[in-house]
Design a protein around this nucleic acid. Sequence first.
DNA 1: CTTAGGG
DNA 2: CCCTAAG
Length: 726
Amino acid sequence: MFHFSLQIEVVLIPPHWCILYLLLHVAYYIVMKESPDYGFLAYQGFTIPRGPRSIRKRRPRKQTIEDGQVCAFELLAALAGKLLQESESSASSNAEGKDQLGILGDGFKFEDHKAFRSESRDPGSCVESAFMSGSAVREPNSKSSLRDTLHLGDESVLKHTSNTTDTDLSKDINLDLKLEICTSNSVERNLPDRMEGISSKDGKLCDNQRMVVDDGLVDKNMYQGDFVAPNRGSRNVRRANYVNNNTVINSEHSVQLQSPLCKDPIPSASFAKHRNNVKFFTARDDDNYFLGNNTKIKAFRPESRFGYRRIRKILTSKYWKVAPTLKDSESSDCFEGMKPFYHQRRSFHSSERIQRQTPSKRVKLCNNDNVLASDDETSSESISNSPEKGVKRDNNDSTPFLLGAIGRSASLKSLQQSGDARVKLSIKSFKVPELYIEVPETATIGSLKRTVMEAVTTILGGGLDVGVVLQGKKMRDDNRTLQQAGISDCSNLETLGFTLEPCMNQVAHFSPKKPSPLLSQDADQRLPRSPDTPNLELGLLVPSSSNDPPTTKIGKPVDDKLELGLPLRAQAEACSGKAVKDSKALVPMSTLNVEPLAVVPLNQKCKRSEFSQRRTRRPFSVNEVEALVEAVETLGTGRWRDVKMRAFDNAGHRTYVDLKDKWKTLVHTASISPQQRRGEPVPQQLLDRVLCAHGYWSQHQSKQHGKHHVEPLKIFTDGQAERVGA
DNA sequence: CTTAGGG
DNA sequence: CCCTAAG
């Protein structure tokens, strides 16, 4: 049970822009709760508990601590976010959004790695992978360590919202963990990994602290990320650099954290694969923090673009229900990449499945007593929140520790300025991908902790994408504007949720083959699919406050813009190149797709939309239809895969089955009277072509492979079809 | 994994 | 869109 929360600002993009930009100011806090109550160990079987049955039973954190056990793992993970802000228009609006996020600064605390070391007492383990909160470190016995560490509270949020300013926003991260214990398991390995970071902040948290994470699993290679933590108030940021080539950050405002490079060389070819570049940075001045995440995880088996469905399937149906033995060939396949991490039997897996996970409970960090509160509600949304459950802050305000639901609350605001509407929202928590952990029964609690930590760090450090869920539906189309998705509608904000999920590079729209190393898959996904869009450039990266030099978070010579911008642009270029290749490349559905999502009653969302979630509906735009028609005219109706590649190659969604289905409906649509048609009207001309092509290919049996090349019927247009077909 | 169809 | 049976 991890509680993970963060705050995100979503900037609405001008209507016609096809890019969805999210700027995430993310602070991660991960806490792992290992209280015996969990019963992880209790499970002998292969089934894994979905989550803590009863969190309430858990003992207060402090107690655990007292027991001398590591109560929680705290992890500061960096997550990347992309933000686009239009500088010009934003200028005016910035005033409002200015002090929005202060998350990182106060929210996190980094500790000395010494503490960690002290922590590692596990006989068998070399290093304790647990993260201790700063306070904890200092005062191991302190019960309130967590609390201190985390400055999470509604207050901050509120302040934030109110733009009061420097308030800290902190978030917690909730993770649902599944543990699988195999009796037959073998020895665990301890691979120390460490993440080190420095965070600065003016507030309560110690500035210049650094965090060291020891992750047994992670190899040096695994984490080759840079974590940049925002430095809000501190002038001096101290930077710990364990990484070989770390750059030092001198920026006053920024701090850079470098993720762990382990000294321990753990030879594993597989590790090489896991490289993360995580950037965690924030800008202090304008209060805009950017989290850049450049991570790429290959741990997961690459999924073909066409195959995401498969994964989905796996995740969704049978597998997820069955407690993950991972015996499944399929599932193992999916995760196979992960295995290398754990040499022997130890392994953890994370998958999208998580998202569908049901009844997982969320644990929230609580106040002074370090109590963990659980949120019973379906994991599905970060949306729902239960402030009431939260514990107060140390301030003893009665303010609930946790923020309200994501998007919910006053913090949301949309204003129309300069024609640019903005949506502001805060995210209470992120859902993190499910983790599968396998440890021997004989493993010690400490090793279990380490294992979890490893898994968590691996996941967080390397491969998460942010998912957007609206009304229980995943918003998969990154090209869609918030407006189009209906997010602009204030009333819907409550149903807006975010998830962290394993990245699926493969699904990325662009350069699926291999994303540029610089780019994070994250970025990938968020990039506008169509290069055509003039606005691409804009979108990318203009930091919300373009004027915020402070954002220089990156200590490197490069300024933040560069940091972010370059990669993105590069990618964009790549894309465009590709696009060029595929003349059929679809034009962003942007303008055409106006169809907002139906508004679903809030209640519905709770309804475990989490698991059997249907893909979000993405009506085909006219452009897409045209591309489809064109492709079918050329290729015929039996080669959907080819059609897909030809015209929708870079449309991450849109499987060939989708195309086939669409064609089916198009044919139907074309055959009915215009009055009976619904949805975005398809130009009659296109429908005519549909009929022509349909007729033509029906006769030519394009589907039959035996057939030789049938002439594409590009020739016809309109009325000529008949003739040709004959 | 693809196709083809039904739901 | 989903799901599945069939290549």
